[in-house]
Design a protein around this nucleic acid. Structure first.
Lengths: 173, 173
DNA sequence: GGAGACATGTAAAGGGTTACATGATTTG
DNA sequence: CAAATCATGTAACCCTTTACATGTCTCC
């Protein structure tokens, strides 16, 4: 439902949206907040069109496959409202699965665990930077980017704490 | 891989583990940190057994289906080490998809958005409480529970901030 | 003797990913 | 003229969930 909400909301909010462009946007800006691959995006668009949530007109440019430019229908708008409400009030279970790997840190010697966690920390720093770079202030996604920044920061702080614990444990021995 | 890591780690760490009991544990304690449904757990156990990562002896009690009591094999231990390292050093993309719904808050009037967000806040409080209740300090899962607590708290704080913003906006009008 | 816990699963259907397929247009 | 970009998709496979299936044992 999350991916559908994103796609539907995007089409609803911005005009002139077609598959290829949506996928470009995801690659360049929104990949840090939603994960939708190209075939999935196409398939969901197709499905929503079948279900009558969105309609499209074709825009032919030269001899390539025509762009399918989508817009939301009345029924789609109803669906959007429904899904949005549902999503806002709940906090769905699939999202809150925590990286369980920390439970088994003790299975590794400190000398091995530390570089691995350092790699994770670096990755998180990279994600934070990528987030700042692709932040779009214009369209109304500010809240989501801010939300994601908080999340990454929480992850980063926690990872750094664990690294600190391991390091002091190592030093103590 | 996360579910496999959890199951494998559980079998590795604790003894006397069989499908039904693992599912019970997930329901009662670990449901707040991993989401694995019953059939999935059974299927993964079966698959890992087929792949030679775990082996089992059967314990017959009366005439019911015998318990399959699993233990980790050498090959399973190697797999565990591999998956654990892989997991610790990366921060996998599927996990960091952010609830995108906040982007479309403006599609709702404040009077409607506020109760929905209040419901989310309550749900998060419930999750935090459930987390504290099922926290197991014994087995080595402390870090994961702490990790998850941080996450939920971040979510809660953010949600409360958004509620505050909406409320003041509503009052300002 | 019936309800609920114990213990295993299977079947069908949905959802997503990876890799593959196709062809036109622009740019260097 | 080759490489990258534009624009669409399909096919095969894997994973997960929901719902169904089966039978035993224990406790009231």
């Amino acid at each position: 439902m999350e991916k559908i909400l994103f796609l539907l909301g995007l089409i609803r909010t911005a005009g002139n949206m077609y598959g290829y462009r949506i996928n470009e946007l995801i690659d360049s800006h929104f990949g840090v907040i939603v994960s939708i691959t190209r075939p999935t995006a196409y398939r969901l668009l197709e499905k929503m069109a079948q279900d009558g949530w969105i309609s499209f007109r074709e825009e032919q440019i030269g001899g390539r496959p025509p762009r399918k430019i989508y817009s939301i229908t009345q029924e789609g708008e109803r669906a959007f409202q429904r899904v949005l409400r549902e999503s806002l009030q709940s906090y769905s279970p699939s999202e809150y699965s925590s990286p369980v790997d920390m439970a088994f840190l003790s299975a590794l010697p400190c000398e091995e665990a530390l570089p691995l966690l350092n790699a994770r920390r670096d990755r998180l720093r990279g994600l934070l930077q990528a987030l700042d770079e692709s932040r779009m202030h214009e369209v109304g996604f500010e809240l989501v980017f801010e939300h994601q920044r908080r999340r990454f920061e929480t992850e980063l702080v926690f990872t750094e704490e664990v690294i600190g614990m391991l390091a002091s444990k190592k030093a103590g021995q």
